[in-house]
C-alpha cells in the first residue's frame, strides 16, 4: 500500500508513468469507465476547496467508483476535537482510498501513519500539495512537450505557496531546468525548498522584479497571496497586490510562454489575459481531473 504525501514519494519514472496513463485516459476515457467500480473514495477536506475536491470526486466518478466525505471541519468530529489519527482509523473502515486536505502542516503524515488504505495529501497548510504538482507537470507536458531545459518562473507568494514548493521539488529532478523565483522579500521561498536545488546544483535566481525577467521565461507560474496564511491582516494588505500580470507586461514575454496558476486567483492575473492562448490555467484545471484519475488507478492497483 502506498501513500502520496509529498512529491518525494514518487520517483521520476513513476511520475512519467502517471503522465503517460493520464494521456491514455485523455485519449480513450471509455477504457477506464469501470476501472474503480465498487471502490469508494473518501474526500476529507478540513479546509475549503473547490477545484481539488471536485476534481477528486469527478475523477472517482469517471472511474466508475463512489465518493463519500466531509467538505469542512465543522461538519466532522474534528470540530469536537477528534485527532487526525482517530478520524483516519474511522474513515478507513468505510473507504478504499482517502484524499485529505488539512490546514495544519504534516497532518497527512500523521494520517498515513494510521491508515490501512492509501492516503493522498490534497494540501496541508502551506506545506505540500502533490496532486496540484502532478496537475502542473501534466499541463507542462501537454503545453511544452516535455520538461528538459525549461526556464520556470514562479511568482507571488513563494513562502506559503505550497504548490510552488512541490513544483520546485518535482521539476528540479529534470535536466536543464532553471528557476526564476519572483516574490516580495517577505514572501521568499523557505530554506527547505532550496535544499534540493542546492543539492542538485540546479540554477536559480531570486528577484523581486517580474517585468525584467519575463522575456526569459518558458513558463510563468503565478500564485495568489493567500489571506488565510497570514496571522496579521496588515501584512496581507501590504503584500497582496505585489504582482499583477497584465496584457501590457505580457508584450515582453515569449510567444510560446505558458502562463499557469493553481487557482483560485484574486487579481494577480488580469482577466484581459484569459483569451490569450498562452493562458493555460483553465486547461490546467481540466488536467487536474485526469492526473487524479491516474493516481487513483495506480494507488488502488486497478486492473484495466
Amino acid at each position: 500500500m502506498r501513500h502520496i504525501i509529498s512529491m518525494a514519494d514518487l520517483s521520476v519514472a513513476e511520475i512519467d508513468e502517471l503522465i503517460t496513463l493520464s494521456l491514455s485516459i485523455i485519449k480513450s476515457p471509455e477504457k477506464y469507465r469501470e476501472a474503480c467500480r465498487h471502490k469508494k473514495l473518501a474526500t476529507l477536506f478540513f479546509e475549503p476547496s473547490t477545484r481539488t475536491r471536485l476534481s477528486f470526486e469527478a475523477a472517482m466518478y469517471e472511474l466508475g467508483g463512489q465518493v463519500l466525505g466531509v467538505s469542512e471541519a465543522s461538519s466532522s468530529s474534528a470540530a469536537k476535537g477528534e485527532s487526525v489519527a482517530d478520524t483516519i482509523r474511522t474513515v478507513c473502515c468505510y473507504a478504499d482510498i482517502i484524499a485529505m486536505r488539512h490546514p495544519k502542516e504534516g497532518a497527512p503524515t500523521v494520517a498515513a501513519a494510521h491508515a490501512s488504505v492509501p492516503v493522498i495529501n490534497a494540501g496541508d497548510g502551506g506545506h505540500n500539495h502533490p496532486t496540484q504538482t502532478l496537475t502542473d507537470l501534466l499541463t507542462i507536458k501537454l503545453e511544452k512537450g516535455g520538461f528538459e531545459g525549461l526556464t520556470v518562473g514562479l511568482c507571488g507568494d513563494l513562502k506559503f505557496g505550497r504548490t510552488v514548493h512541490s513544483l520546485v521539488h518535482a521539476m528540479c529532478r529534470y535536466p536543464g531546468v532553471r528557476f526564476v523565483l519572483i516574490s516580495p522579500e517577505e514572501l521568499k521561498v523557505p530554506s527547505y525548498v532550496k535544499i534540493p536545488l542546492k543539492e542538485g546544483q540546479v540554477p536559480y535566481v531570486q528577484t523581486t522584479d517580474l517585468v525584467s525577467v519575463l522575456p526569459e521565461l518558458d513558463i510563468l507560474y503565478m500564485t495568489r497571496v493567500q489571506r488565510e496564511r497570514f496571522f496579521n491582516e496588515d501584512d496581507y494588505v501590504r503584500l497582496k497586490d505585489s504582482y499583477i500580470l497584465t496584457p501590457e507586461k505580457l508584450t515582453r514575454a515569449k510567444a510560446d510562454l505558458a502562463i499557469m496558476h493553481p487557482l483560485p486567483r484574486v487579481n494577480e492575473i488580469s482577466t484581459a489575459i484569459d483569451p490569450d492562448p498562452r493562458a493555460c490555467y483553465f486547461r490546467q484545471v481540466l488536467n487536474g481531473k485526469f492526473i487524479r484519475m491516474a493516481l487513483i488507478l495506480k494507488l488502488l492497483e486497478a486492473e484495466i
Partner: peptide, 27 residues
C-alpha cells in the same frame, strides 16, 4: 502551523537532514 501545535499527544520527531550542518527537521 505544524500539526503538533494542535495535537498534543503527537511525539515531536525530528530527522537528521544534513549531517555536515547538524541540521534536523520536523518529520
Amino acid at each position: 502551523r505544524c500539526i503538533t501545535s494542535t495535537e498534543q499527544q503527537l511525539p515531536h520527531v525530528f530527522r537528521l537532514t544534513d549531517r555536515v550542518r547538524d541540521e534536523y527537521r520536523c518529520i
